[in-house]
Design a protein around this nucleic acid. Structure first.
Lengths: 221, 221
DNA sequence: ATTTACAAGTGTTTTTTTTACACTTATAAA
DNA sequence: TTTATAAGTGTAAAAAAAACACTTGTAAAT
């Protein structure tokens, strides 16, 4: 009756970037059967003596070269028939990265490509579902935790920040209400310098001060 | 280099009940080594052709006799050394049940016992951490989804409901504010009948109308 | 030098939501 | 008839969210 358990455990990474005012996802081209030619999340198997969190980071590095990325677990997908190549249960992790630090040339080496989330190619297995749950989680969390700053350079402007939020939430926000809330966050520090590239007037740069944030631990946008 | 993956996959069930105005947890006595004699969550291994959701339900049935319980995945614990008996990754599920439908005699058969969450015995492995994350999730969700009704009989009074919320959230709520919110929920239907067991005046019974709720899908307490 | 074009920046009012707070009522038991 | 007690009820103040339009600073064009 009892037979040895034969289930493989994998991780899949859902990597968000931001570009052209749109939320994007990093996918890799699948070069082997089954589902060869389709696109997939960055995934791989967990090592025998490897924490699953570590596995997610290693797999991400192996397939994309990305290192030291803070990822959070999203959820675990465990339908018996979810992977047509055999029994695989997969735990998903997600992260937000600055796309400009992971540019075209580096992506090229790895058969990876960015896609706007509104315009994803066909994904293997249940990866679309994984993406869906990660996006829902992101939208829930982005209003209450200062996680979106990972998608921006260290210095950013308020118009940039607002467009980022509008892109993530997929809704438009009132500029004055948005800026009022920002101005209540003391850990969003205005710099003297202005970004003159987007307008004649120029927009002040801001930075997110993590230390100051850690004293308040209070975020709401 | 590459060796065959040898990771076992398990599920652990975090079963909440409510009693004496306190949130309780159903635990089982561990009768085998390692950690024999301690208490643990209701857990077991996933079958080779079994969805992990189904595994959670089967394991719950096997160890407690509880059937047809709606459970939701919480998160997956995958530290390499979390289980001293070998490499086991475990996905947790949680449910809320009506304790009176799972009473002392039935519990007895299964070496299971209820414990108030404020007063848990020592748990094996990382089960305390699992419980912690399930409680945090419960407290987050209970204000926005009508899940607490699973802990009450079909007919319940508003004083009962309020005490339930106070127990779950571990804070006291203003009676009038609480009742105002309830009265805005058309799917909480007042019955003619009163519960005379707790007071001279008696408290009206209410019921949660799921069909009506599904038309609004809007909950806030 | 002046004008022009345009994104950046700025406050107030209204509405909604949340919080705080104390007395009356219905009934069983004495 | 009285008493004891939990159930039930409304209003005002404070805080948060939403709606809404004009001024400003600068580079480029004239």
């Amino acid at each position: 009756m009892e037979q040895k358990q034969q289930i493989k455990l994998a991780v899949d990474c859902i990597i968000f970037g931001f570009n052209n005012n749109r939320l994007e996802l990093l996918l890799v081209h699948r070069g082997f059967e089954p589902e060869k030619g389709k696109w997939s999340l960055i995934g791989g198997f967990v090592g025998n003596d490897e924490d699953i969190d570590d596995a997610a980071n290693r797999v991400l590095y192996d397939l994309s070269g990305l290192e030291n990325i803070y990822m959070e677990q999203v959820r675990t997908f465990g339908k018996a028939d979810r992977d047509s190549s055999g029994r695989v249960v997969s735990t998903t992790y997600s992260a937000m990265i600055l796309k400009s630090e992971y540019n075209e040339e580096r992506v090229g080496k790895y058969d990876a490509k960015w896609f706007p989330i509104e315009d994803l190619p066909e994904l293997i297995f249940d990866h679309s579902e994984m993406v869906g749950s990660a996006i829902r989680r992101l939208r829930r969390r982005v209003r209450n935790f200062p996680i979106a700053f990972n998608l921006l350079p260290a210095k950013f402007t308020l118009p940039q920040l607002q467009m980022l939020y509008e892109g993530i939430l997929s809704e438009s926000l009132d500029k004055r209400n948005f800026r009022r809330k920002v101005s209540q966050m003391n850990y969003l520090v205005r710099l003297e310098e202005k970004d003159m590239s987007e307008s004649r007037k120029g927009a002040y740069f801001y930075r997110f001060d993590e230390e100051l944030y850690n004293k308040e631990l209070n975020f709401n946008l």
